[in-house]
Amino acid sequence: MSSTTASDANGYWYPGIPDREPARAVLKALREYRAAEQEMRQRIRNDLNINEKDLQALHYLMHAYQHGNALGPTDLSRLMSISTASTTALIDRLVGSGHVERQIHPTDRRALKLVPTDKSHVDMQTSLQRFHERMMDIASSLSPKEANVVTRFLLALTETVDQEPQAPWNPVPIAGPS
């Protein structure tokens, strides 16, 4: 991923101002990380034979299960901001692939709870454990001061990305080949 491209030469979105080179390098590294993470997620989806929404739903269900909570179809629909029809189709796929079971809710027999199966735990652990361990090793190699700087930086970027733009974005037209 660290190969030089035409976008590097022209500064991508950020003009090649010498005193901004360290900042450009950080943002370039962040873009490369995001691309690598997306590729890793694609490999995991391929390994599990599920799509991105299914993987996201499985993450929510497993997280809730690990914290002693149960999610129902309505909860999942709300978390994922998808329609009830889409949620039903998603749940059907996860049940069909053996990753989730529908069970009667323990306190409301009219409701369902969605429970990740042993297969989903094994599949996710097999697919993700080595990545998580290596990522934790890298993060653990930071000093507390370095970890604080990285954390503040990423939280500030997250806050910026989560905010609505203050003014309309007017992109500069990109000239095509002549």
Rank of each mutant, 00 (worst) to 15 (best):
H105N: 11
Q163L: 05
P144A: 15
T126E: 01
Q103M: 12
D47V: 02
P116G: 11
K145W: 11
N51T: 09
E133D: 08
I138E: 15
V26T: 00
N10E: 11
E133M: 07
Q56E: 05
L79H: 14
M136V: 08
E52T: 10
V26A: 14
R102H: 08
L61H: 02
L76E: 04
G11Q: 02
T107S: 12
E39F: 07
T126C: 01
S83C: 00
D8Y: 04
W169L: 10
V115W: 07
T158V: 01
E146I: 04
Q42T: 09
R134K: 15
Q125T: 01
S120W: 08
S140N: 15
E32I: 00
L155P: 02
P22C: 10
T4V: 08
R102P: 07
D108S: 14
I17D: 00
H121F: 11
D54I: 05
A25S: 09
A85L: 13
L76V: 05
A167Y: 13
V172M: 05
Q103C: 09
S3C: 00
T126H: 12
D54N: 11
R110H: 07
L27V: 04
A25T: 04
R152Y: 11
S2M: 10
L71T: 00
K53I: 02
S143V: 03
G176P: 01
A167Q: 12
T5K: 09
A57Q: 06
V150L: 15
G98C: 10
S77L: 04
G96C: 03
D75I: 04
K113A: 03
R34V: 07
R152G: 08
V172K: 10
A85F: 03
L79M: 09
S3H: 09
K53G: 00
L71P: 06
R110T: 01
T84P: 04
A6W: 11
E39V: 05
E101P: 00
A36G: 04
A156N: 15
S77T: 01
S140T: 07
E21R: 12
G96N: 08
T88C: 08
E52P: 02
I104P: 07
D137V: 09
L142N: 14
G68D: 03
M124L: 08
H59L: 03
N46K: 12
N49L: 12
T5R: 15
A147I: 03
S97G: 07
A175C: 03
R130I: 03
R134G: 06
A70F: 14
R130P: 06
I174L: 08
A85R: 15
A175D: 07
T84S: 14
A36C: 07
R34P: 01
M124I: 03
I104C: 10
G72K: 06
V161P: 05
P18N: 11
R93N: 11
A35P: 03
N10K: 14
T74A: 14
P177L: 13
D92I: 08
L112D: 01
L71V: 06
T151C: 06
S143M: 08
P168Y: 10
G176R: 13
S120P: 05
P144L: 08
H132C: 12
S141Y: 05
T88N: 15
R130A: 10
K53C: 04
H63A: 12
N10P: 02
P165S: 13
S178V: 04
E32M: 09
G72M: 00
T107A: 08
L128S: 05
E146M: 13
I104A: 12
I17E: 05
A156R: 13
